[in-house]
Amino acid sequence: MNLFLQICIQGLMLGSMYAILTLGYNIIYSTMGMAHYAQGDIMMVGAFFALDFFVTMDLPIYVAIPLSVICNVLVMLVIERLAYRPLYSRSRTLLLLCTIGVSTVLRNAAQLIWGTQSFNFPTIFPGDIIHIGEVYLVPQNLWILGVGVVMMLLLNLFMKKTKVGRAMQAVSMNRSAAALMGVNMQTITMITYGMSAGMATLAGVMLAPIVKVYSTMGVSIGAKVMISAVVGGMGSMPGAILGGLLVGLVEALGGMYISTTFKEAYPVVLLLVVLLNRPQGILGRKKVVKV
């Protein structure tokens, strides 16, 4: 029983990392209606910025993280302005292809600028393993879970209580009607992408000590993020959390009880199951289009 509990905990820890990134992904999907394929790579860029500020320049962590967030948000806004904005009036497929292109550009730019090898990133939350009975918890992972929960709560507050947050919700429900209410679409777009990039940076900083910082670190996690988003419900914030956690659980449980050889395949199986039974995702909205 303890083994089962342990592996569930591990799965949830893994899943909370996916969840944080998926939140950022879903914000973009809900407000802009586009699938941001490059979300994982934006995380990677954020991690590299943190590497520069925290490790290379040896700035204290509470300076390095905000600086990294600012830099990464700037990068994201520039990309939005140059690559995405010209395509909003065109087909969604074109926009998706564009995000795939941005993903490749970001990876190769990172390789050019920082190099192709892996870099060490010190853990911000040192500490020995915590043992509770026969179950153990790694402090870094606990922090990831904590940050994820806090992020979700803050996001929830933001969306429900602030004017801008409610405007974003309105935009996600009906874009043209929101425009008619006087919502400034450009501002909303910038805020959406900015928030998404900021969250991705935080996710990168959390992940870096565990997997090291390298140019392709966004690739495999980017795929899991997209799976989490679809499974949980595209555009749904609680869906992002649910989807991320589920994917993490499935990966860990499958690896433990079936085989570690196919560990990367179990989330895909989950995706298939969800798509066949509830294509809008577990917490997704069914799109009703009036003809």
Binding site: R166, Q169, A170, M173, N174, S176, A177, A178, L180, K290
Partner: peptide, 9 residues
């Protein structure tokens, strides 16, 4: 046209 209320608000 078509009212376009924010259905989930």
């Amino acid at each position: 046209e078509g009212r376009q209320v924010f259905s989930e608000l």
